[in-house]
Structures are given as structure tokens and as C-alpha cells.
């Protein structure tokens, strides 16, 4: 089976603080995955490992069969939407320009955006329903609108893999629904998506192919109907340290 993302004996620590332990996981190409776990369970660290911001202390991570080094990432973009963060509201940059940043690697060094890049940026903004605000300074938008702009920037990367860290956090219900509709659309287009959430209600909104229950180690990984059972959820959210093996975790 070909995996879009594969962890083998992967462990990560920040100094002496262990964050992820002995992760063995294969995410199939084209799958729509949810990662659930309490705050501090390593969800964000796992995503940052996939985009090469964290290097493993032991074990390996491979994305489309390669370690996600900087030069590899430049050639094979991995779309990433970080958690809503406080951006510099005064930075003089428009919504359109922010999304165009997602095209930086495609455009290449010493080159300017072409018509194709501009069309992709407009299309990305249209898909998150933000085209009408393209000329607004990013700092003038609400948190939810900024989040949609950052999703558009990730879409503009035209990646085969899209990672979203708590994309629905702090958003109203219609906006959350539009994000899950977008996930469905990407799934249909063959994009591998990995979405983290600490909110189990998110799993009601959208059908994920598989759910990863994470609490510093893999508690369970499998189809929602097998994973979302009281025993596994209590282990995940109470942090009891024994793994439950299901079919898809290898």
C-alpha cells in the first residue's frame, strides 16, 4: 500500500520533554483523516513534523516516500493551515497578497507571478468565499475571515497533501460547515487531508475515513465507527498509556 505520510518508530522531544513517542503510522494517499486528542497531546507537533518544522529524535517520517527536507518541500508543496494565531494586524498586506504568498515556490526565484498564478489565487479565494474581500488589508478581517484566507493560501499551494490544525476552532457553525464542505471537495479531488481537532463534535459534521486518537502516542487509528467508542475515547482523553491496535495502524 502506498502511504502519503508514513511514521516509523517516530519520537520527538523538546529538550528533555517528550512530546511524541514511538509513532508508527501510515496515512494512505487520498485519505481524509482526523486527529483527535486533548490539548498537549502532540497533535500540532505531529503536523509540524510532517511539514519539516520538527525533526525526529528517533525514527523516521516520510512524506510521499521522502523525508520532508526543505529542498524537498520546495519542490513538493505540503499545504499547511496553522492554528488561528494572532498575526501582526498592522502588517501592510492585502488578502490577495497573502494568498499569493502560497504561490511563492511555484513562481520560483527571480520571477514574477504569471496570469496562471493570479487565476489560482482568485480561485482559491472564491473557494473559501473571500474573493470579495481580496483588496482588504489582512489585519482588518475577523479571526474567522483570516482563517479562511490562510486556508486559501494553502489551497493556492496546489498540494497533494493538506494539513489543517484546528481549522474550526473559534468559528461559527456556518463557517465550520463550509470548511468541512471544502474538505469533502478536496477529498473528491484526491487530496490527502489531515485535520486536527480537540472537539469531538467536529466528527459529527464530517465523515472522516479514519480517525487517529493521539495522546503523545497512538492510542488508536482506524475507521470512526471502530475508534469512536467510549473505551478508546476515555484512554485518549485521560492519557492512560496503553495503545489499542486496530487494523489500519501498522
Amino acid at each position: 500500500m502506498s502511504y502519503a505520510i508514513e511514521f516509523q518508530d517516530f519520537s520527538l522531544a523538546y529538550g528533555t520533554l517528550s512530546v511524541l513517542e514511538n509513532i508508527n503510522l501510515g496515512i494512505p494517499a487520498g485519505a481524509c483523516i482526523a486527529i483527535i486528542g486533548p490539548n498537549g497531546s502532540g497533535k500540532t507537533s505531529l503536523l509540524k513534523s510532517i511539514v519539516g518544522l520538527n525533526r525526529p529524535n528517533t525514527g523516521t517520517i516520510q512524506v510521499q516516500g521522502h523525508p520532508p527536507t526543505r529542498t524537498w518541500r520546495r519542490r513538493h508543496q505540503v499545504g499547511y493551515v496553522p492554528q488561528i494565531k494572532s498575526i501582526d494586524k498592522n502588517f501592510p498586506i492585502s488578502v490577495y497578497e497573502v494568498v499569493m504568498l502560497g504561490r511563492t515556490a511555484h513562481i520560483g526565484y527571480l520571477r514574477f507571478p504569471k496570469k496562471e498564478d493570479r487565476l489560482i489565487v482568485e480561485d482559491s479565494l472564491r473557494r473559501v468565499n473571500m474573493l470579495h474581500l481580496a483588496d482588504r488589508p489582512i489585519g482588518h478581517l475577523s479571526g474567522g475571515q483570516q482563517q479562511r484566507v490562510f486556508i486559501a493560501r494553502a489551497l493556492a499551494q496546489e498540494s497533494k497533501i493538506l494539513l489543517m490544525d484546528e481549522p474550526a476552532s473559534g468559528l461559527d457553525i456556518p463557517t465550520q460547515q463550509s470548511i468541512y464542505e471544502l474538505l469533502e471537495e478536496l477529498h473528491g479531488g484526491g487530496v490527502t487531508t489531515v485535520t486536527t481537532t480537540h472537539d469531538l463534535l467536529a466528527l459529527e459534521f464530517h465523515h472522516f475515513d479514519q480517525v487517529l486518537c493521539l495522546n503523545r502516542r497512538v492510542i488508536a487509528f482506524g475507521p470512526p465507527e471502530k475508534v469512536l467508542i467510549p473505551q478508546i475515547l476515555s484512554q485518549t482523553f485521560s492519557g492512560l498509556p496503553w495503545p489499542v491496535h486496530l487494523s489500519s495502524a501498522h
Binding site: 518544522l53 508543496q77 502560497g102
Partner: peptide
């Protein structure tokens, strides 16, 4: 390197994610 320096100035982490 205008667009690269702007990306770095606005969002250093994402600039790194895209391979800058």
C-alpha cells in the same frame, strides 16, 4: 528576492514550510 523577503517578514514559519 522581494516576494521571498516579504513572506519571511510576514510569516516566517509558513515561509519555511513552503521551502524558503
Amino acid at each position: 528576492f522581494y516576494k521571498e523577503f516579504i513572506f519571511y517578514a510576514f510569516d516566517t514559519e509558513m515561509a519555511e514550510v513552503t521551502g524558503l
